[in-house]
Nucleic acid binder design. Structure first.
Lengths: 139, 139
DNA sequence: TTAAGTGCAAATTATTTGCAGTAAG
DNA sequence: CTTACTGCAAATAATTTGCACTTAA
């Protein structure tokens, strides 16, 4: 796929979140959704990836941008351990495998797990999302 | 219940994890399980609680102790947001409500939620635990 | 007696922020 | 134009660690 096409996809994706397509954001969006497949990134991993492509984006901007994308609803933040935040381009409710030994995060095939019999949320509140993390250890 | 009785309960609980009952650890254990009911704490909240009781325990020791208890399996660490770790005296698999507005963590009545159709873990790994967090927002 | 635990204060790590300069609409 | 974005460096916040001292077994 041509880089210009990936760029167009990225720009369209930003538009879905009502986010202004600056040079840096488009560069990041291209890496996140340019090939049409979902991925999990951390600020650090995305920063490395964008630099590897030769694009100049500061780490602070990567952090701010990931936060902005999450708030706009085009990314979903996933908290698996206190020390690092992951971001998922798949914003639908779905379960994750998290390997405590390697720090790797991966999707569980949707349809495999189901959370049933969801409780009533306490009054005055509503359910924002449901996170299911299956923690793995080497056996 | 007498304080000495709570202390005995705490000491017994430490023994279950094979943990040496020092003065500080017993003081913390007493607060955690002394009254026989489960609770969720953070390092900070437990530190405040123990100081309020007039016991001298340093914050570093609270951190180290909570980690030691978790590793010994008598506490379960719960990660709900990147910035703070919670610890639960109920170490069985059960779901939690987490209110993003207040930072409050509470138990879902066991029996209400169920995770069904758990997937096969990737080969070479086994499931350590399954975390279900129902995130709430004020409505 | 002696290995393990404790308490400081300093170090670490991930993330956020202030602010001066830059760019998008 | 003018408001939002970016980048750097400094600030923050939670947690960990090095090390001299204490204590449980």
């Amino acid at each position: 796929m041509a880089t210009t096409e990936e760029q167009a996809i990225g720009t369209r994706w930003l538009a879905r979140g009502g986010i202004r397509p600056t040079r840096q954001r488009v560069a990041l969006a291209k890496l996140l959704v340019g090939d049409g497949r979902h991925r999990h990134v951390t600020a650090e991993s995305l920063f490395d990836a964008v630099r590897a492509r030769g694009e100049k984006v500061s780490l602070a901007t990567v952090y701010n941008t990931l936060r902005a994308f999450s708030e706009a609803g085009i990314l979903r933040e996933i908290t698996v351990n206190g020390s690092k935040s992951y971001f998922d381009t798949d914003t639908t409710n779905h379960a994750h495998f998290y390997c405590e030994d390697t720090g790797e995060l991966s999707d569980v095939q949707s349809g495999e797990v189901a959370v049933t019999n969801l409780p009533e949320p306490p009054k005055g509140t509503e359910i924002a999302k449901v996170d299911v993390v299956i923690r793995l250890r080497k056996s």
